[in-house]
């Protein structure tokens, strides 16, 4: 490992690409489709009504006792355990990967009777530089590495560089690539440019799955979120994702509901299943349960599998562990009692 090595070419040249296979059955990719501008422009989103619906999802759908425990385990399974800090180091990433492999302490696994599930997170999500470390640390676990790429989080480096970054991350072993759209294309109404760019990223991904981040905190208006969702899906994104975690507003339920509805509409019109990843701002077990209920009610059971749903989260796991500990022991737990990610 050469942490100081910043050259993309060198980095990919130095590290062999391990032949990792994803444990879960291969999910049908989104083949993409031509850009249909009429569809994009026809989208209507009523903010107040969306907020009203979003506000009742949680109150309408409580899960208690063993149902809650099981749902929280499911949330762990759907988690992209993430570190995206400027001060990330191999040591930090290794620690995260260890947590991804063993997200729960053994005594909790035993008490819940879920040893057979071999619970692990959905992926580990890091910057390109940390991909090799993560790939190595996760070797044999079946946990894919996701790389944020293409000039993350602003996405404003030269397009050619962004494409090369994707290629390099894929070459380094990333099986999932999280890119961020150019928000300017939306504000200038240049849907074609947005489409072309995402399509180019998708091609650069090869077999790696593409998650398109809309940076919804920047888009502000829900109708923008809906339109950008559609364009990304048309361009071939396998997942649409809310946020980089770096915008001032991260994933919210109303934004998520809008994206999920667009996924449903895309499914209805094309038959293609697209994944959804809310990211940032989901730090509590209770919030995770609401998201799961939303996915189940709006899209159905298939969207509670890692192929179609992820939480992008860093602190969520600790809160889930605390809740599970409470479920098992009946006592409220403290964060320090659970192994750090």
């Amino acid at each position: 490992m050469a942490p100081g090595d910043s050259s993309l070419d060198t980095a990919s040249a130095l590290r062999p690409v391990p032949a990792v296979t994803v444990a879960s059955p291969a999910h049908a990719r989104n083949p993409g489709m031509p850009l249909l501008l009429d569809w994009v422009r026809d989208v209507r989103v009523n903010r107040s009504a969306v907020e009203r619906r979003a506000a009742t999802i949680g109150p309408r759908r409580g899960v208690k006792k063993q149902w809650q425990a099981a749902w929280l385990l499911r949330a762990i399974r759907l988690m992209d355990l993430t570190t995206l800090q400027g001060d990330d180091t191999p040591g930090r990433v290794q620690r995260l990967c260890a947590k991804a492999r063993r997200p729960l302490e053994q005594h909790l696994v035993d008490a819940l009777g879920v040893g057979s599930l071999e619970l692990r997170t959905a992926a580990v999500c890091v910057y390109h530089e940390m991909v090799p470390v993560a790939v190595e640390a996760l070797a044999g676990s079946g946990i894919p590495v996701a790389a944020v790429s293409a000039g993350f989080p602003a996405g404003l480096s030269p397009l050619r560089e962004r494409i090369r970054e994707i290629e390099a991350s894929v070459a380094a072993g990333a099986q999932e690539i999280d890119i961020v759209i150019t928000r300017a294309h939306l504000f200038t109404g240049n849907w074609q440019a947005m489409y072309d760019e995402v399509k180019a990223f998708r091609e650069a991904c090869g077999d790696a799955h593409l998650k398109a981040i809309l940076a919804t905190g920047d888009l502000r208006v829900l109708r923008n979120v809906a339109r950008a969702s559609l364009v990304c899906m048309m361009a071939g994104a396998d997942f649409i994702k809310t946020s980089t975690g770096k915008e001032s507003t991260n994933a919210t339920l109303p934004v998520s509901l809008v994206m999920v509805r667009m996924i449903r509409e895309f499914l209805e019109r094309t038959g293609v299943q697209i994944g959804f990843k809310p990211a940032g701002g989901i730090g509590q077990a209770k919030q995770a349960l609401v998201y799961l209920a939303m996915m189940k009610d709006e899209l159905g059971r298939p969207w509670l599998e890692p192929e179609l749903f992820r939480f992008g989260a860093s602190s969520l796991l600790t809160d889930i562990e605390r809740q599970l500990e409470h479920h098992v022991t009946g006592r409220y737990s403290a964060g320090y009692r659970h192994p750090l990610a």
Binding site: V63, Q66, A70, R74, L112, G113, L292
Partner: peptide, 25 residues
């Protein structure tokens, strides 16, 4: 009681697969 005496209690592992909503009385 949540389940009648003698009835099988749904396990966490089963619910993890089914992802059904349970009773939340």
């Amino acid at each position: 009681p949540e389940a009648a005496p003698g009835a099988a209690v749904t396990s966490v592992a089963e619910i993890y697969e089914s992802m059904e909503y349970g009773p939340a009385p």
